[in-house]
């Protein structure tokens, strides 16, 4: 089994606060890896370190065999890493269509036409500004944007945050579809139960340290553990 991404011993700081304290993880090629943990555990910081947005002070990151540890963000993304940031971060003043023209045009199957087939709603709203979209539409746009660089690895930070249950299911369905397309996926979620249902591998992060790594099924089977490690919100969400 080859790895799309490996991180070894990441130490990341915001100023003087030491947030990640030796995080190691791997995303296997063609699989979905879930990274869980309660609020403030350091999940977003981990993803930002992987993307070079908040570079780790120590440790090593390898993406598709390249040592990307010191690379600038744009170069990491241009390797074929799609990033769906926390809070979606769509360009609020740009139209939907313009949002879709920002990503680097890496060759591959994804084009704006194909995106519009997958997300008909975005085509209907292509002339609307980003800020006029609903939360669900913004999430779709953020995912669409990441797909347009034709990623080999897709990194998503809490894509279900703040969405209605029906829309959450749609988002998870799309993530599974991307796996079927052969894209490796690293999924950060608060919604532990649902992510474990679609994930192959799982990690749990607590206070900047990995406290579980193993199969997603095994973790899902351990009720008490899911509840205590992944935080209270694990309770609220189940695949209804």
């Amino acid at each position: 089994m080859t790895a799309a991404l490996t991180a070894e011993g990441l130490h990341t700081y915001y100023g003087k606060s030491h947030i990640l304290q030796g995080v190691s993880l791997a995303v296997a090629e063609g699989r979905i890896t879930a990274l869980l943990g309660r609020n403030g555990a350091g999940k977003t910081t981990t993803l930002r370190s992987l993307m070079g947005l908040t570079p780790a002070r120590q440790g090593k990151i390898t993406i598709f065999g390249e040592d990307t540890t010191r690379w600038p963000t744009f170069r990491i993304a241009a390797q074929g890493v799609g990033y769906v940031p926390e809070g979606r971060r769509i360009f609020a003043n740009l139209s939907v269509e313009e949002n879709l023209k920002v990503p680097l045009e890496r060759g591959g199957p994804w084009t704006i036409e194909r995106i519009f087939k997958l997300f008909p709603r975005l085509e209907e709203r292509k002339l609307n500004r980003g800020r006029q979209l609903s939360g669900g539409e913004q999430e779709m746009l953020s995912i669409a944007r990441a797909l347009l660089i034709n990623p080999r690895l897709l990194i998503l930070d809490e894509p279900s945050q703040g969405l209605a249950p029906l829309v959450v299911r749609e988002v998870f369905r799309i993530i599974q579809q991307m796996k079927a397309e052969g894209i490796s996926i690293l999924l950060v979620e608060q919604n532990a139960r649902m992510s474990l249902e679609i994930a192959d591998d799982a990690y749990v992060l607590d206070d900047g340290m990995i406290v579980y790594s193993g199969g997603a099924q095994e973790l899902a089977a351990d009720e008490a553990r899911v509840r205590s490690l992944a935080g209270a919100s694990a309770e609220e969400w189940t695949l209804a």
């Binding site: 744009f74 740009l94 944007r145």
Partner: peptide, 25 residues
């Protein structure tokens, strides 16, 4: 143009433009 759209996107959120593979330098 894509250049112009990226410039406008960058004035809103340069970090996200970089995360979409654009050489922001």
């Amino acid at each position: 143009t894509r250049l112009g759209i990226r410039i406008r996107a960058g004035t809103l959120d340069l970090e996200t433009v970089a995360a979409l593979g654009i050489n922001v330098r």
